[in-house]
Design a protein around this nucleic acid. Structure first.
Lengths: 224, 224
DNA sequence: AACCATTTTACGGACAACCGTAAGGGTAGG
DNA sequence: CCTACCCTTACGGTTGTCCGTAAAATGGTT
């Protein structure tokens, strides 16, 4: 049976990297043991080098978040993928991440045009095998292990303006002082009333009754 | 060289479990392939069974957080460890977790009387090997990869009362309504002034200026 | 029972947040 | 150029929070 021959693994956790390599060998992929890296910069370097030598990679398996323990040009998986797409658009990409929210995974698949998304969870090794086999057949793969939002809640879109004022609140800025900050940074609506109105509509839409609950909501969903 | 002969791995992520097994075999531990489980309840069952058969485990490697995808008696690693200590106090225990904050790891080592703490991070497989070799020599092992709190901040102790009122705020309860709730649940200081004063001292000690910042602080540190 | 120390509660003024209304300021279409 | 419309801002009244002070309750000691 045919299969990918040249795969690159970008993953900062040594233990995860090991198990991905093991999984590849389980499905009879002869995986050269040097084809894994711990930093995004190294991943991009390897891909460039392989292109120069005209032995390009066929698949990139990458994590999303990498620990910032040394200065890097590229510090996360999403940025890496964008950079890779510029130099080798046909490279197949599989994200293997702790992120397990369905709507986040879907958004990433569309925005980054990746081929598969597998969350680190129970049975993730089996999941990974299926994903690799699926994308080898030129099909997309969105893992069934992704979690639907419990309440199928309205995917309310926080604008960057919203995030700015909420972030300021979490830094201890009193609401009435936010206009000064916004003016300094030339952010468009800067009136106190605009801030009040915006916070009010957010709270109404999300059925939230005070600022404290709003902060908790945003923190839980990693909006800020 | 002598080494552990009977080890149990409790870890819900299949990929991590695989790499731990691989790591064990790397240091020449003959690891029976059935000695890993995906649920805490199964872990406790295995340990009990091994005791009955007078072939007890020598080491337990466990995660801290497990996904709640089916009803379990024990749903997290800390509870598992407490239960295990009751039936086999001499069993050596190694926590292998995503948690990488030094003070949290230290607290766990003391509270649960575990033998080693290794965070899932860069080089965690090597880290794991060293940890196992160290505890085999009856020494404790606290990984050097743990992160010190950036500011060595005052480890402020939130009382259960504090957590209660902060939780109520995050649920949208107005401050002025909290006394009613406290009275209903027979929580002792229930006056509005007591709540105000408590919030005030917390904010003063932590140098926090408003409730929003306090909520963010607590969410970031998983206090609530 | 009387005393003191600490905690809890009640009260009141100052201030911030909330909310409706209305006035100002752009922009697109006529 | 005018007008209708929307977005933004200003204003004021109400309510909630903040914070200091003082009274009341609690608990321990003699």
């Amino acid at each position: 049976m045919n299969m990918f021959k040249k795969i690159l693994i970008a993953e900062d956790h040594e233990s995860v990297s090991i198990s991905v390599q093991k999984t590849l060998s389980d499905i009879n992929i002869v995986h050269d043991h040097s084809n894994y890296v711990f930093y995004c910069d190294d991943a991009l370097g390897r891909i460039k080098k392989a292109l120069r030598e005209e032995k390009p990679y066929e698949l990139l398996i990458t994590d999303l978040s990498f620990e910032h323990d040394r200065p890097q040009e590229i510090s996360d998986g999403a940025t890496l993928i964008k950079a890779v797409k510029l130099i080798q658009p046909d490279l197949k990409i599989l994200i293997f991440s702790i992120e397990n929210r369905s709507h986040v995974a879907k958004a990433l698949m569309e925005d980054l045009e990746i081929d598969a998304f597998v969350p680190k969870a129970r049975g993730d090794a089996k999941d990974l095998k299926i994903a690799i086999e699926t994308i080898y057949k030129n099909r997309k793969y969105l893992s069934p292990n992704l979690k639907q939002a419990v309440k199928e809640e309205t995917p309310f879109e926080f604008s960057s303006f919203d995030k700015t004022i909420i972030s300021l609140l979490t830094k201890g800025t009193p609401q009435k002082d936010i206009p000064f900050y916004l003016q300094k940074n030339n952010i468009k609506p800067s009136g106190l009333s605009s801030i009040e109105k915006r916070l009010n509509t957010i709270k109404t839409v999300l059925n939230i009754s005070n600022n404290e609950q709003l902060i908790a909501y945003c923190k839980d969903r990693q909006i800020i």
